[in-house]
Amino acid sequence: MASAVAISAPRPTSRRQVLIEKLIGCGFVFPVCVLLLLLNIVPLGVLALLSFTDYQMGAVDFGFVGLDNFAKALGDPVFRRAVTNTLIYVAIVLPGSVVLGLFAAVLIHGRLGSRPFYEIVYFLPITTTIVAMAAVWQIVLHPGLGPVNAVLQRLGFEPVMFLSDPAFALPTLAVIGIWQLVGFNMILFLAGLSAIPRDLYEAAEIDGCGSPVDRFLTVTWPLLGPTTMFVIVTSSITSFKVFDTVVAMTKGGPMGSTEVLLYAIYLEGFQYFNSSYASVLTLIFLVFILIFAVIQTFVLDKRVHY
């Protein structure tokens, strides 16, 4: 009897331990769950609900209108223009900031003494507030006062209305977007570069990779795969969310040429108080982000990890 007790004794304690462990685990997860619920899930639910109504901000009641808002969005030329503008912006900023970030990282990685200096110089744009920088950019790009146009005129070109010519405004914002992102991407790439073992480069050198291009293609680029993947994900989402430069510099103009998705949502929701329609646009925006994320995790992810 005594031995039976001895044998079965550990079982309840171990069961209790498991329970305690589970409770502790839940305790750790609880704050995050609450925050996630309050800040993401519930608003998302409300958003989805609103998109089927005709609610306007400040109104006391609302009626369900079914899919009317979605139909309106699909036929809305302003919204379509916003989507197109956003895609053009992403198409310029994403490759620009990734390639330039990588290029800067590779150049800086080999520097011993001057590396911290360049790191700071490239990282500075991230630490500045864009509202202040917007004023600087406006002066730099000013048709009459700015140094850029002064140089262009010296070289014999016509002055360019960077921010007030519909053909130039969006690309100009994209260049500023690249300027904002390059430093951050460079830091990420530098971290990735530091993780590549030095003897791989030495092995490559012995194996016949005599030129820097060969070594880059054989060692650096493939081994930066996971970093590149991460940089592409963060950069595409960041550039998709472009908003602050638009507000601070062009307000969607000239002639709607820089009206991007978030700005259109902002106008609908907080300027025209068209909450239900803004909800629909936000949902569509989220779908775009989701598509990006899915493509990246399921297609690219398979090819970069080893």
């Binding site: 073992p197 003897d199 490559a204 050198e205 012995i206 194996d207 054989t218 493939p222």
Partner: peptide, 28 residues
């Protein structure tokens, strides 16, 4: 290094992690 007609085996092996064994051997 690659012009010296020498081969080197490293302590860490220094194999290219993204290539197969075949790719590693064929690279030179």
């Amino acid at each position: 290094p690659h012009e010296r007609r020498i081969a080197m085996v490293f302590q860490s092996y220094a194999l290219y992690p993204h290539m197969t064994a075949y790719g590693n051997m064929a690279l030179p």
